[in-house]
């Protein structure tokens, strides 16, 4: 008995969404709230909402929805927990510069950990956008939907974030190289 064509399965889609976005969402949530527990709770809730009311579309197109829900969930969790919601102030951010010292740089030569460290120095909002972009794979428009910003604002903020990050990265790279060189007898 030849089986007819296979229907589009729903379950693989949602499970794929879990596989695809679990880590990005947690990283994203942590960058916002700084607390791994709250972040996990928010992500858990996000996927529970997904199970209840899955929106249409393929796995990738779930991203804006997931990040938006996760973000809203975080906000309410944070309110509940009476934690401080990070301020959205570029000015504050620009004054901070915890660039790693030479010793730190030497210890953390690995590019990834260096990048993580550097991203952590960015203002919360910029970290959020970077994660949405690079972990969530969201477009500017999706990011705008998820964060409630305008597309233009997203572009500007992301540019600022990346520009800063790039400079800092190049600077630490240079430092690291110098340190390494100085160690050579």
């Amino acid at each position: 008995m030849p089986p007819p064509a296979e229907p589009i399965p729903e379950r693989p889609r949602l499970l794929a969404a879990l596989d695809r976005f679990e880590r990005p969402l947690i990283a994203f949530a942590r960058s916002i709230c700084g607390d791994p527990e709250t972040a996990r709770d928010a992500v858990q809730d996000t996927f529970l909402s997904l199970a209840k009311n899955p929106p249409d579309g393929d796995v990738e197109s779930l991203a804006p929805w997931l990040f938006t829900v996760c973000r809203n969930r975080l906000t309410s969790l944070q309110r509940k927990n009476h934690r401080l919601v990070p301020m959205e102030t570029l000015t504050l951010a620009e004054a901070t510069d915890p660039s790693p010292g030479p010793a730190d740089a030497a210890e953390n030569r690995e590019t990834s950990s260096q990048l993580i460290r550097l991203i952590a120095t960015l203002p919360a909002r910029q970290q959020e956008l970077i994660r949405l972009k690079f972990h969530g794979g969201l477009s500017y428009r999706d990011i705008a939907t998820a964060t409630g910003l305008t597309v233009t604002h997203v572009g500007t903020l992301l540019h600022q974030a990346l520009d800063t990050l790039r400079r800092k990265y190049l600077a630490t790279e240079a430092l690291t190289t110098r340190c390494q060189l100085s160690k050579i007898p």
């Binding site: 679990e22 880590r23 947690i26 590019t111 990048l115 972990h135 990346l162």
Partner: peptide, 14 residues
């Protein structure tokens, strides 16, 4: 570089 070298955190799974 960022896209390839910016991993989701190690502890980033539920």
């Amino acid at each position: 570089l960022l896209a390839t070298e910016f991993p989701t955190d190690e502890s980033g799974q539920l």
